[in-house]
């Protein structure tokens, strides 16, 4: 069962292994990663060109009845 002690030990573990490195990934995330909540269109790579924002647009299109 989750309780505050479990939470604390899990948090301590994540911090100890470095997975709490919010600054590290935030530095990447802000610049380059598609965010579901973020509909800014990022530069598409060549090839398959996966874009979450495009998916979201498509999704919205499917909801327009």
């Amino acid at each position: 069962m989750s309780n505050s002690r479990t939470r604390t030990s899990r948090r301590n573990f994540l911090l100890a292994v470095g997975a709490g490195g919010a600054a590290t990934v935030a530095a990447i995330g802000a610049k380059t990663l598609p965010q579901a909540e973020d509909t800014n269109v990022k530069k598409a790579p060549q090839g398959s060109g996966y874009r979450v924002s495009e998916h979201i647009r498509n999704y919205y299109r499917t909801t327009l009845v």
Partner: peptide, 21 residues
């Protein structure tokens, strides 16, 4: 730490979906 996990998952999702630019 959960925000960091979310961002790591986002990064991994991106890297496994297509090659990075």
């Amino acid at each position: 730490e959960d925000q960091a996990r979310a961002e790591f998952y986002a990064l991994l999702g991106r890297l496994w979906y297509a090659a990075p630019d």
